[in-house]
Design a protein around this nucleic acid. Sequence first.
RNA 1: GGACGGGUGGGUGAGUGGCUAAAACCAGCAGACUGUAAAUCUGCCGCUCCUUGCGGGCUACGAAGGUUCGAAUCCUUCCCCGUCCA
Length: 315
Amino acid sequence: MMGRNALLPLVAIVGPTASGKSALGVWLAERLGGEIVACDSTQLYRGFDIGTAKPSSSDRRSIPHHLIDVLNPMEEATAGGYRQLALAVLEQLRRRQRIPVFTVGTGLYLRALLEGFAEVPRRSEELRARLRASAEEHPRGYLHRILNRLDAEAARKIAAGDEQKLIRAIEVCLLARKPISEVHRSGRTPLKGWRVLKIGLMPSREKLMERINARTEAMLARGWMQEVRALLESGLSENAKPFDFIGYRELRAVIQRKISLDEARAAIQQATRQYAKRQLTWFRKEQNVRWFSGFGDDTKVQASVMEWLQAADVA
RNA sequence: GGACGGGUGGGUGAGUGGCUAAAACCAGCAGACUGUAAAUCUGCCGCUCCUUGCGGGCUACGAAGGUUCGAAUCCUUCCCCGUCCA
């Protein structure tokens, strides 16, 4: 089954939300002796199920799924944290000689895993709070000027208005006691020991939009609203990160009577479309992806993916 | 029938004689992104031509006329919409 290649294959399915990554993943896992590893920043969270499109138990068909429901809502998901978790899963799968099939919605997380992360200090909430506070007391462009003083090269790459990235860059410079660009140059450790095969799903924009709209309706019909209500009533803080995910924030606004359900539905569909677009922008740049036009649950697409994998000596 | 208010680019909505192809926001398109990434940010966004320039031409602020060197902005008539009075 491994052919002449000694490395165990690692399959990664990338594509915009609602392109059928999960369906294709399970279909492949069944045929390759694989297991699913979710690569999605939102599916990490327990309790937020419908809106994050976690595959249901029947969707999963007895194929083990990893890295879903591993965080409490008050925990912070990060790319580096994901990498650690994923490396552990990979070790386990290697021992059992199972093929990992990643379903990738969060491109940054896949990159963190495959290409590694430089040794970078973790976030420091105190430092961030201080930076944010002094940014408010100073005129526009304050953070950018600070970064420029610490690391002109990094400052050139980050827009003056991008507070989030500026703060992170300043944070790294201060905590590492050297410019972030130097830290980055010191290198990343790419994943070794796996033969990575990237599969991209690229449905037509128009059909994808239709799917997104329909899926939003279906999620609402499945009781998404009740899920949000129950989460709120469970005493969970409204500040929990997942409450800001697409859909959860809109439905929360409905519960708070700020908007109507119809408005929420439209807003969710729109935000999801925009999200899909951003994913596409990210994935288009991803190296060595074999793209397939269509959805992952399309039998024709599945057949051609399998054909490609066989040609690549995987199946 | 009468009195007001209003009709602006895909949408909302500023703009009351030149600095306005027309603020701002949204949508859309393209892009960036090494620990918040379902996040955050950037550019473009009437049509067109090229020598791609703070360049040229054309079209545009309900319609048609008019005033003016010059109008989305002033005048006239008409057509719509909203509110109120009959």
